[in-house]
Nucleic acid binder design. Sequence first.
DNA 1: ATGAAAGCGCTAACAA
DNA 2: TTGTTAGCGCTTTCAT
Lengths: 353, 353
Amino acid sequence: MDASDNPDSAKPPARSPRAGYRTTGPVTLRTIAEQAGVHPSTVSRALKRSAGGDETARRIREIAAELGYRPDAAAASLRTRRSGAVGVLVHRLTDVVQAILFEAIEQTVLELGYQAIVANTYDDPDEQQRRVELMLARRVDGLILADAHTDLTYVDWVDSLEIPFVLVNRHAGDYPSVTLDDYLGGRLAGSHLADLGHSRIAVLGGLPHSSASTERAAGCLNALRERGIEVDDDAVETTGLDASTGREGMRRILDRRPDITAVFAVNDFDALGAVIALREGGREPGADVAVVGFNDVPVAEAAQLTTVRSPHATMGSAATRMLMDVIDGRHVQSMRLSPELIVRATSCPPPSP
Amino acid sequence: MDASDNPDSAKPPARSPRAGYRTTGPVTLRTIAEQAGVHPSTVSRALKRSAGGDETARRIREIAAELGYRPDAAAASLRTRRSGAVGVLVHRLTDVVQAILFEAIEQTVLELGYQAIVANTYDDPDEQQRRVELMLARRVDGLILADAHTDLTYVDWVDSLEIPFVLVNRHAGDYPSVTLDDYLGGRLAGSHLADLGHSRIAVLGGLPHSSASTERAAGCLNALRERGIEVDDDAVETTGLDASTGREGMRRILDRRPDITAVFAVNDFDALGAVIALREGGREPGADVAVVGFNDVPVAEAAQLTTVRSPHATMGSAATRMLMDVIDGRHVQSMRLSPELIVRATSCPPPSP
DNA sequence: ATGAAAGCGCTAACAA
DNA sequence: TTGTTAGCGCTTTCAT
């Protein structure tokens, strides 16, 4: 583990001759062609189909491997007009939901022989534009936007660029998208709380520009209304995506409405923040107050949080395949996946008076 | 929000003539040169220095903007042998620490006129190699590895590639790195628990191949030993990076050692998992049992978790600058940043017998 | 099946 | 300052 057995480790990177065939400089098709005594174009063809072929092809591939040949993506891209890369724009990767989405997208994209390039836009329109421009400069073959706003300025602009793209996680307009049925998810949460017998319910509503947030809240509110339960405006707060905003929002609601017996947060981190604020206020979630979150992020199970599960990995890979269809000019149709209610220990009936 | 006011939104991407100068096909330097009546190389030069210049340069930039010119990064890269991209390899982005690091790296890299490309390797050697190879195919100008293993196979191999690289978050061998002084951080945690009066302490030790995990645990153990406090092997568990592994590890320790009065976890999510396991075991963290985590991730404050703060954003941007130094052939020296103990509500003395 | 030749868009000599 | 020329490494006609 000490570096003393590795005396070269501190040396700065420097060009130096290597063993084997290699003499100097980078290995290109021409290098291989010279070694093999054939034309570069023959090497190109032999390397294209990675298996099979005749005697010559096999020899060429052997030499290429021996020399440590690495195809130059830039050169290929320049020639073919395809970069083999797709751009992914997310709100921000410190939001674990976006990170899960990206991991799924990356994996699917790799399976299909592409590479994924991700950019954080922080939901800021200037940053969205800047990052899309950079993606275009890299000549990505398509774009997956996880950061669409319900306001169409952004997505309409991307559409005008005439680059293939799909939306994921949030929908906007009727551009092709893969999303959860967030409205239904909100309904599941609202119905669950109503079934438990609650009637004084608080809502932590998330980001106003995100279809995911607004539809979850709307679904919950409508499901409650159908049961004759009204959620007053002073029991609703908009929040961000982390526990601190959820905690603060919950505190404000508790100040105004100490009588509430249940909370629905449109994402799990806000729900965890609410759990903390409730404990600070002397109430035990799952005993005195019911809490329902949304997403079923990894920490939710450990926290025993009732939540609405969203199949983020499935969404990511479905969006990737949909993008490939758009790239290939096939017809695509937006998908809405189904949410699932996961009941855990933070569910409880209202305390008996 | 409905698409009826946006009848074009559903149409598949298709080449179509646009307004203004543009006639057909993509806009290249030649297109602009023809419009301006100059040679393409003149356009290239005029566009390079984005401000100032004479009359001609100004006119050229105007035309470029009007035509919506987007430089082709692949073509420039092919010519200059520099891609303007740096590769970032992380354990996985769903680990919020890695996501924070990447956000900082991305931002710094953008300020310096580069673009960042990130890859999840899941700490798997095969994946590490595969993703580095893909980075090389993209001809990245340098690599930032956040997923180094203490076993040197991986980093030695990267070194043999003769591409500039630095390590961040974990160090290995004596390759240039920006890390926290994890050992000292562990000592802070251990000393804190000893100061509170604890002597029966459990440790959740993280990933064995990560210098960050092992040194944090070692620092804690050594600080305790110096005070005459031994941590028995049956009070130690290795864990992953999320709350569920922390919860399980804590449960196993509680089964064997119900007498422990304090826990140190080498990362906050394991600590949160421990908090949950303790509550399930009928003990209140911060009252019956002290819990100390590590990293000070965003949720830690909301959870009132005592922890050791690591300046991840600073680490990310320092590593980026260090990489630039390596790329430019300047001498660099590894950095170790200082941890800071953040005392919150999960700190408490042992219960009086 | 292989070779020859051209060219993707850009930049960096060099020349004027 | 501007134009000329050449070429980065690759793919893809076309001809053999």
